[in-house]
Computed example of a mutant assay.
Amino acid sequence: MSRRGEPARHARVTPSATLRYAVDVRPLDRLTTIRTKLGVLVLASVTVSSILVWAGRSYNGRWYMTFPVAILLSLLVTQVLARGMTSPLREMTAAARAMSAGDYSIRVRTTSRDEVGQLGHAFNAMAADLAQLAEAQRAIVANVSHELRTPIAALRAQLENMVDGVTEPDEEALEAALAQTERLTRLVTYLLDLSRLEAGAAGLHLQRVRLRDVVEEVVAAAAHAARASGRTVEWVVDVPEDLDATLDTERIHQVLLNLLSNASRHSPEGGTVRVVGRGGQHGGVVLDVVDDGPGIPQHERDRIFERFERGTGAPNAAGRSTGGTGLGLAIARWAAGLHGGSLAAIDPGERDGATLRLTLPDQPPTP
């Protein structure tokens, strides 16, 4: 993907565009304003016509015969200079038509230093952003289709087996079907949150709460989910009793539940997941979720917060797939950002495992 303000790597330059660049003379590109260019254009036209009229009068005395020639040459000079001035505008018109048809690869030649050149740079930046957005939308559609197809196919196969009598509708089969249904529900919830993120339509319902109460509630939910999946994990809450915070409990519950679920899935059997809280240096609170899993490689500590990114490390301590959607951490970071805080994977130091740090300010910004 191209960075903002830079031409995309796949920007297309056609042979006709190359030929046009070759014959498109732009002698006034070094001038920094359109007013200066117009002044130079008028001066050049008047100078050419004046020289020709003066030459005709000096050499044969018939200035009126050279007058039409002077006018034609002045128009020619004006045409050459004006064409170079308006070339970026014509290129932007052609590029806009191509973009309306879905082609975001065309870029405008921006050698001019005046207002038109600045417009050309802005146009190229816009085209690069639109190309990146279109690519991201295609990736989201492809990833969502893949994520939905997997649990739907598994659920359909289980139900067909029960209908056909291949599998008895016993407790184990029903629990497997329920797990796929819960995965679908989780994915749809994430997608709804993602749509709110894109639309900027999410708000906060802030209240002053005791942080330990919120953490203990989320830990209880995560412990129940771990037991339901047959995992044995020890949970430790190390949050001061008197630590208060202003936050949206529903959003922070969503963030912490995602962090604790990930920590539980990646911890070894019988491992420990710790939630450590303290006050921030400049007010606010800091919460660390620490596990005993394989850890997060340094080069992936930012990538794991991207949409549909699961990382390339081991799936979990047992070597099994975690069944994640790759959306939870992206939405968790977004929810932390709504509070004016941050969510990051930090260096665990000498110990093994991963540490994810949630930082929240004392007074979140008003949405």
Rank of each mutant, 00 (worst) to 15 (best):
Arg3Met: 06
Ala8Ser: 09
Arg9Thr: 15
His10Gly: 11
Ala17Phe: 04
Thr18Asp: 08
Leu28Phe: 13
Thr33Met: 01
Ile34Ser: 03
Ile34Val: 15
Leu38Gly: 13
Gly39Cys: 03
Val48Cys: 11
Ser49Tyr: 05
Leu52Gln: 13
Ala55Leu: 09
Gly56Arg: 06
Arg57Ile: 10
Tyr59Leu: 13
Asn60Met: 01
Gly61Asn: 10
Gly61Ala: 10
Met65Arg: 10
Thr66Phe: 05
Val69Ile: 15
Ser74Met: 13
Ser74Leu: 02
Leu76Gln: 14
Val77Met: 11
Ala82Thr: 13
Arg83Phe: 06
Arg83Lys: 09
Gly84Arg: 07
Gly84His: 11
Met85Phe: 07
Met85Cys: 12
Ser87Ala: 15
Met92Thr: 05
Ala94Tyr: 11
Ala95Thr: 02
Ala98Asp: 03
Asp103Asn: 14
Tyr104Cys: 08
Ile106His: 12
Arg107Val: 12
Thr110Ser: 13
Arg113Ala: 08
Glu115Ile: 11
Val116Thr: 13
Gln118Phe: 05
Phe123Pro: 09
Phe123Gln: 00
Ala128Asn: 09
Asp129Asn: 03
Leu133Tyr: 14
Ala134Phe: 06
Glu135Pro: 03
Val141Phe: 05
Val144Asn: 12
His146Trp: 08
Arg149Met: 08
Pro151Ser: 14
Ala153Asn: 09
Arg156Ala: 15
Leu159Thr: 13
Asn161Lys: 07
Met162Gly: 04
Asp164Pro: 01
Val166Pro: 01
Val166Leu: 04
Thr167Met: 04
Glu168Ser: 07
Asp170Tyr: 06
Leu174Thr: 06
Ala177Gly: 12
Thr185Met: 05
Leu187Met: 12
Tyr190Gln: 10
Ser195Asn: 09
Arg196Cys: 00
Glu198Ile: 05
Asp213Thr: 11
Ala226Phe: 03
Arg227Ala: 08
Ser229Asp: 03
Thr232Trp: 01
Val233Glu: 06
Glu234Pro: 07
Val236Asp: 01
Val236Phe: 04
Asp242Glu: 11
Asp244Trp: 00
Asp248Pro: 02
Thr249Asn: 06
Thr249Trp: 07
Arg251Pro: 04
Ile252Glu: 05
His253Asp: 12
His253Ser: 14
His253Gln: 01
Val255Trp: 11
Val255Gly: 01
Leu259Thr: 03
Leu260Glu: 01
Ser261Leu: 05
Ser261His: 08
Ser264Gln: 12
Val276Gln: 08
Arg278Ala: 13
Arg278Ser: 13
Gly280Asn: 08
Gln281His: 06
His282Gln: 01
Gly284Gln: 00
Gly284His: 00
Val286Lys: 10
Gln298Lys: 02
Glu300Gly: 12
Asp302Val: 11
Ile304Pro: 10
Glu306Asn: 10
Phe308Ala: 05
Arg310Trp: 08
Thr312Tyr: 15
Ala317Tyr: 02
Ala318Gln: 03
Gly326Val: 12
Leu327Ala: 02
Ala330Gln: 00
Ala332Ile: 10
Arg333Leu: 09
Leu338Val: 00
His339Asn: 03
Gly340Pro: 03
Asp347Pro: 11
Ala354Leu: 02
Thr355Asp: 05
Leu360Trp: 02
Leu360Cys: 12
Pro364Asn: 06
